[in-house]
Structure formats: C-alpha cells, structure tokens
Design a binder for these strands. Structure first.
Lengths: 253, 253
DNA sequence: CGCGAACTTGATATTTGTCAACTAAGGTGG
DNA sequence: CCACCTTAGTTGACAAATATCAAGTTCGCG
C-alpha cells in the first residue's frame, strides 16, 4: 500500500475501489533534490502536489527578508488541497531532503472528491490534522519559552515520525539546520543554538548531526507541556511492516 | 440568503437545490450570551457548531494557566468541520459577544458532503482559508515585532469584517479586551497596552472603547507588512444588501 | 589546501515580561 | 442616590528573555 492510502486508511476504511483509484493516482512519481522549491508563493499550480517520501516544508518569505516555516511535510504526509481550491499559492513549499513527489491533476482530485466520499473525508481529516498542528505551533510560539518550544517541536516530530515507522528506540533523523529551526520557532539562530544546548545539558535530548535521540520521552513531554491529543492519532488501523509500533500509545480519538 | 450560503457562494455558485438544503440546515438557531464556552477541549461533540452572528474565538488553556487564542470567528463565519471529523475536541470555542449559533447534526453534514459536492468543496475552501489565516498568524508572531503584529491583526480584522459589511468608513467594532489581544499575540497585557498606544501615537489607529478607526489603511498595511492574498477573497460573488462593498478590492484570486 | 556552510560562544543591546500602583467606568445592594 | 465592588485600562520601574554583533571552530568538499 502506498503512503497516501496508508495515511487515509488510518482515518477510515477504504473500499477496494478506493484503493485501486489511489494506486493509480500516485503512479507517476518524480525525484526532487534537497533544498529545491517545489512551488512558490504567487504560483498558479496546475496540479496538486503530494510528497510520498522525504522531508519538505512550507514557508513564506517576508519583505524584510525574514523567512518563516510553518509546517513540515514528512514521509507519508501528503500536501493539503491548497493548490486545488485556491488559484494562487499564498506560500511556498520546498524540499529539505531528496523527495519523491507526485503531481496529481486537478481533474483527478475533483473526481476523487465527487465520486469517492470516503477519500474526500480522508482528505478533510488530513487537512484538519494539519490545521491542529498549526494551532499547536501557535500555542508553542505564544505561550512557551524558547527552550520549551524547542523541546515541544522535538516531541512532536518524534510522535509524527513514529507513526510512519521512522523512529527506532527514541532515535530519529531530523534533517533541519539550526537556521531552519530558528525560522520555525520564530527565534534567532543563536538562541536556537543555546536552547538546544540547554536541552542537551538537561539530559532531555541528545543530538549528533541530524540525529536526534530522546532518552526519556515522558520527561521531555512534561518539560515542554506536550500532549499528543492534537495529532488525532487514529484508532490504530495503520499497520507498518505488519507490526504496529510499540511506542505509539493507542488513543481512541 | 443566510450567511452560511453567502459565504459558500463567494467561492462557488451553488444550485437552487444546494441553497434549499442550506436554508433547511440553519433553520433552528439559538442565542448564546457573551463570554460563554460553546464547546470545551476534551468534549465529544454530537453536532457541528456554526456561528451565524456575533464574535467567537477558539482557544486552548495550558497546564500553566496560560491561554492562547488562535482564531476569531466573526459574523458570517462558520465553524470548520473539526467536530465532524474528530471525535474529541483538541481546543475550546467560546463566544465573545452574544451569538446566534446553529447545531448541525453529524448526519446532516455527512449528507452534505456526500450528496452536494459543491457544498463539500465550499466547506473545504472555508477550512483552507482558516488554515491560511493560522499560517499568517504564525508569521505574525514569529517574524514581526509586537507593535507590527498588533497592527497586522487590526488590518486583518478590517479586511475580514469589511467582506461581511461590518466596516463603514474605516470604522469597526472589535469586541476584544486587551487581555484577549495579549493572549492572541502571545505577548503580555502591559506590552499589548503599550503597542496599542504606540499605534495611536503614530496616528495609525484610533481606538475608543471597542471601536477601531483606521484613518489610512495603506499606511497601516505598509507598517505591518500586511498583504491580503492569504485571505483568498473571492472573485466578488458575495453581494451584501445588494451593493458590493466599495472598500473591498476585487482580487481575482 | 583552502573555502563555505553550519555550529558555537562571549559580550552587549533591545525587546518584552513582571510587579505594583493607580484611574476610570459600570453594576449592585443598601 | 450613593458606597463599594469588580473589571478594564494605564503607567513607571525593574527584571528576564531574546536579539544582535563579532569572533571563533569544525567539517566536508573541490
């Protein structure tokens, strides 16, 4: 099963016909190098973009030269329907690592939403999870200190990557520079560096290069005020490599 | 035409049948006093909530007692489908003024999305605009100073209220306390007070009680770095009281 | 070998938060 | 009608968080 179908299934059981359609939808993939724009603010996309593998981000550049990153798209995540519903992009999307992407024609998405109500609801579900993450980031920036916010982000990435099987034993790869993190949390690079140092010195996080290790997730959650409810992790229909991850608590959302 | 239909129409022309269905959907309204919770985090909603009139907000309370507000629902706005798709609420919704609301049964929403594709796409459109606003707020908090962020918010509210005809000549009502604003912008009350004072002293904004007057919107936009593109204001199909607002620039999104 | 990108650290400046005190306005009970 | 609440707004003084500037270090790569 492809990662799009996998993700949708975690919300609602799809029919054989649904699955066949989805398989068809992602037939033609292409590779994109790291650090490339997939689409830019102001563009009028003809297709809907879907990231099947790799790490990408949404961001905006301001007139004063500053950049803000407001979401990460990880392996298995797919893009929202922004390009389908709106004519022009109000933000840009760029890869962080090499990515496998699919360009889905508008027409195809239209068909999906009109003739496959379960898929349509699945897309809505995914969109709403993205929205919930945005809300939590707002809380993060508004109400938590830089160190707490940094810790919270590392918690969230752990949870999200765990769902798609990209965490083993508290270790995961986070292909972000400190500049990326700074532009995500809305703090300076220097302060980002010091926040990470504080987390390391507190023994909450270990980071070597892009490898993150969280020795005690409960401690990090407590420190950052993290609760996973906003990720709306499904009832556990997702089954990666035949074994449900032991680390993900089953939350009957 | 009711405000739900009006809002959806601004995205896509609805059929007579669509309109009739919508009229039926909002038949049973109720009044709610100001400063009341409509739904709380952790609740399992049976219906989808729709605010027809008044001012409401979404917020979250943190363990440390802090509150963060991450969106305002204004007259004519309707709630997203959060309660429809997710079982439990990951945030709370409260009225700020007296509101007219409708409780739409899940079953009804299900019917709408399955049998009225244009309405379904309209709901998606509205959800994505909400999402775009969340992204802009993230940029606001992350990359702008407190004064700029405050100005940006006042710009945004002007634009959004203008669309629904609640602005006359640069004047509008904003029923928020400075505490509300502080919890929205993620800054302290005192600093909010001083930011507003700075805007007043710069002649960019006049505020008396809850009445806001913006003498020169272009100046305020320039000061705050505001561009309306993220609101995805439609091609102008909305027609309030028979006259399209002169203040809204028609943006062919 | 040298260069650039990312990371690190110290010193200092600026922004923002906290504490405390005070004013103004509206509501309520006597 | 007034005394007395409470809530919202305002201001000053000071503390804390965060930004900026400047100067390294480390490491991969041509």
């Amino acid at each position: 099963m492809n990662s799009l179908a996998q993700k949708l299934q975690s919300f609602e059981k799809l029919s054989e016909a649904d699955l066949a359609v989805l398989e068809n939808v992602i037939a033609k993939t292409r590779q994109v190098d790291a650090r490339q724009d997939l689409i830019e603010e102001g563009d009028v996309p003809t297709d809907v973009l879907l990231v099947l593998e790799g790490f990408a981000c949404r961001y905006k550049l301001l007139a004063n030269g500053r950049r803000h990153i407001f979401s990460y798209m990880i392996a298995g995540d797919f893009c929202d329907l922004h390009g389908f519903i709106f004519r022009t992009m109000d933000h840009s999307v760029a890869t962080l690592t090499t990515c496998t992407v699919v360009d889905i024609p508008r027409r195809t998405v239209l068909d999906l939403t009109e003739h496959h109500p379960r898929i349509a609801r699945g897309l809505m579900w995914s969109t709403l999870v993205d929205q919930a993450v945005l809300r939590e980031w707002l809380v993060n920036m508004g109400q938590r200190s830089a160190v707490e916010a940094t810790a919270h982000l590392l918690c969230e990435m752990l949870m999200r990557l765990e769902i798609v099987g990209l965490v083993s034993n508290g270790h995961y790869q986070l292909p972000l520079t400190q500049t990326d993190l700074a532009d995500t949390l809305g703090i300076s690079i220097v302060h980002t560096n010091r926040s990470l140092k504080a987390l390391r010195e507190a023994g909450l996080v270990e980071m070597i290069d892009k490898a993150v290790y969280i020795p005690n997730i409960e401690k990090l959650k407590a420190f950052s005020g993290f609760t996973a409810n906003y990720l709306h992790i499904g009832p556990g229909k997702v089954d990666i490599a035949g074994v449900r991850s032991r680390h993900v608590k089953t939350v009957t959302d």
